[in-house]
Amino acid sequence: MAGMTDVIACETSICSIEGGILRYQGYTIDDLTKNTTFEEVIYLLWYGRLPNRLELKALKEDMAENSKLPPEIYALLKLYAPWGNAMAKLRTCVSFLTHFDDEVMDHSFGADHRKAIRIMARIAAIVAAIDRIRKGLEPIEINTIAANSLAETFLWLLTGEKPAPIAVKALDTCLILHAEHELNASTFAARVTVSTMSDIYSGIVSAIGTLKGPLHGNANEQVAVMLEDIGNINQVEPYLDQKIKNGELIMGFGHRVYKKGDPRVKYLRPLAKELAEWRQDSRWYEMALKIETIVQDRKALMPNVDFYSALVYTSLGIPRDLFTLIFAISRTSGWLAHILEQHENNQLLRPRAKYIGKKEVSWIAVEDR
């Protein structure tokens, strides 16, 4: 089947998408978005249940203790040209972290979970350092701030200022919504890699490399490009008319799995509105509402998670080419959950291919070809 669409490749208890309902470990995305924090979701994905107060406190403390980056990471980032691809920088930095972990090839349950905490704790600091160093700014040492969550930590490391509560809550919500999505391309890549009994870092590097491809990641960045190209609400209809006439893709609409609408949009749309009001700039939000209405009417397509997340990240002051890296910060929690699950009962993932080439070709000597 083309693209392996609907082919069952493995069994998992981490995430399900059935009847258009997204669940993490049995909990609906609605319950989790309304009631939990991203750190609680991390624990849920890795351990199969929500943490109690002591377990949540311990997870946060473990992540705080393991969040400091080796100085060699900063030195590596300073070797890159400022305009270098941000996803490529993230991929290389995560790979480089391998050399600072003495448990790399220990596949025991305890070692795997300790490595998962180290990776999860450091990835936000790497993304923030990528942006600051390319701007000629020194990265902020994580032990100089007093953040209460990964969302707050990231925004603080990125901007150098304590973020507003509304910004922290918005990013935390986005991290929950993007954390996991069953056997997507990057998750499958991670599971294939570690099924060979390769290390966890290699699995995350495979996932990041897969997410780097524009058919998987990058869509929210392209939504921002589209809104900038349109410019103002009066140009929305002419712009979409031309796109539809030319048969071009309209970014942020449609989904391979959700045929009746992405369940994450109902949280991102009001979040985008709230942040637009906070910033006192509703231009993009009003354009987005008009785009959504026209595309639904003319193409019967509904927005997906990328459409309104582009507005949220823009309102948070995050550079456009970091949008997919924010996705990676969140999805690392899901990638790690699948890696841990794969290692618990491992079997090499080795699918077959249907051969469609020539058969029974006879060899011809080089002088007769």
Rank of each mutant, 00 (worst) to 15 (best):
A2F: 13
G3S: 13
V7W: 02
A9D: 04
S16P: 09
I17K: 11
I17Y: 07
G19K: 10
L32H: 01
N35R: 04
T37I: 04
E39N: 11
E39Y: 00
P51V: 06
P51R: 02
K57L: 13
E65C: 11
P71K: 12
P71I: 05
L77G: 08
L77N: 06
K78E: 13
Y80A: 03
P82V: 03
N85D: 14
S95A: 14
S95T: 01
T98R: 00
V104H: 00
F109K: 14
M120C: 09
A121T: 12
A124M: 01
A125D: 10
R132T: 01
E141N: 15
N143Q: 14
A147H: 04
A147L: 04
L150Y: 12
A151E: 05
T153P: 09
W156Q: 12
E161D: 11
A167D: 13
D172S: 02
T173M: 10
C174Y: 08
L177C: 04
A179V: 04
E180R: 04
H181I: 03
A190T: 07
V194P: 05
I204K: 04
A207F: 01
I208E: 01
I208H: 02
A219T: 01
A219N: 08
L227K: 01
D229E: 15
N234A: 14
V236F: 03
Y239V: 02
I244A: 10
G247C: 07
M251S: 08
R256M: 10
G261L: 08
V265L: 06
L268P: 05
K273Y: 13
W278P: 01
D281C: 00
E292S: 06
T293I: 11
I294K: 05
R298F: 00
P303I: 07
A310R: 05
L316P: 06
L322D: 09
I329N: 05
R331F: 00
Q347W: 14
L349S: 12
R350L: 10
